[in-house]
Design a protein around this nucleic acid. Structure first.
Lengths: 213, 213
DNA sequence: ACTGCAATGTATACAGTGTCCACAATGAGC
DNA sequence: GCTCATTGTGGACACTGTATACATTGCAGT
């Protein structure tokens, strides 16, 4: 994943693409240990550069964190898009719409499970409402995860499954449920359960959302 | 809240109740700035004691954090119990049961709103599944927040509102939804919204849970 | 091709953190 | 009243983020 950010002491004074190398290192750190693990000095170490060099590319440790966060959100968006494109292979419009919403939820929950470090980095914030607006936080469609959920909900309206008057704000309740479950399974009371035990709960929750929306 | 942990340099070599003073200081710090703000040295400073003194009472900074977390969970449990007792003043068994579940959700969401620092401290974990089992994390009933939710769900079954076969695992989907919304409103896309704007979303979510359970 | 300058990486330094170790004061139990 | 386990102190270390001054470089314009 990161070819540039490795040990062999470069001979050129300039790094070439330090910003990207730092970002890669940051992502790797986040993957390994979540947001608190992305520490500036370690990133520069992995990039083979002195700590302060980072400040030529990121205003602060937090700025680096935000970039890593955007990258994580982008990865989630890509996963959602993959799952969405599978859903589109379903039958009629109604089925596709239903499958789309499920795809979003499924991708979200799987991402939380398979990439806990990135997931926590993406969502365990502490500040900065702007991060969601970051254009780097998108998939190939140019949409971020939240917007992709909106697409799925739009499809439900389009297909006549969801009454238009219930559309506004629907992403909030849908997102809440799935996000809450992900957190619960990641670091809450569900942590100890095996994937096989969590799966039915996931299904039940998705059903509740689909029905109760 | 903390009478002991203040500046006047004590004259006795021993503090008297340093453990409690540190805990109080820790809670205050969490209240002000969330989990990352509970820093050992600052707690000892507020207790008027040298940093290392803390290690006579807590094995590490994380041990202190866990204690603070338990305290925060306890505060939430107390808030839930207050709301529950109001729900019990409703009419018949069915109404009480329904009101109980809503009381839990309402208390949870309000706690997140009014005590964001403590809320994040309670739930933004990073480890330790045992914290939920901590006997200090309870209200007057001796039950922790999760168990109180269980009580409300039991009442729904008792009242014939929730079919017994749907009872197992119900706390997970209910908790997920409410917790997710709380996080969303605290540090997600809903952060910017006023309390008046969030309220209807809360109501809608609680309705969805009640109906879709 | 040479020169000057902006961009980028380095050196040094400081305050703040968690934590280890050796030492000092204290108060409870014989 | 002496002993000794408890509790608080002092000093140190490795680590963090970050500021400020300096070195090296590649590119722009002559």
């Amino acid at each position: 994943m990161d070819a540039v950010s490795q040990l062999p002491p470069r001979r050129s004074y300039h790094h070439g693409d330090l910003r990207q190398a730092l970002l890669n290192a940051g992502v790797a750190l986040a993957q390994e240990g979540g947001p608190e693990a992305v520490v500036l000095r370690e990133a520069t170490r992995r990039a083979g550069v002195v700590p302060n060099a980072a400040y030529r590319h990121f205003a602060s440790r937090d700025a680096l964190l935000q970039a890593v966060r955007a990258s994580a959100l982008s990865a989630l968006a890509l996963a959602m898009e993959r799952e969405l494109s599978r859903a589109e292979r379903a039958g009629g419009q109604v089925d596709v719409a239903r499958a789309s919403l499920r795809a979003i939820g499924t991708a979200y929950l799987r991402f939380a499970r398979t990439q806990p470090g990135l997931f926590r980095t993406a969502f365990t914030v502490a500040a900065d409402p702007e991060s969601a607006l970051n254009p780097d936080a998108t998939g190939r469609s140019g949409l971020n995860p939240f917007q992709l959920l909106g697409v799925a909900l739009d499809r439900l309206v389009q297909a006549g499954v969801l009454p238009p008057e219930r559309r506004p704000g629907a992403e909030y309740v849908a997102w809440s449920s799935v996000h809450g479950l992900a957190m619960l399974a990641l670091e809450g009371p569900l942590r100890r359960l095996s994937r096989g035990q969590v799966r039915p709960i996931e299904q039940r929750l998705l059903a509740m959302v689909e029905q109760g929306l």
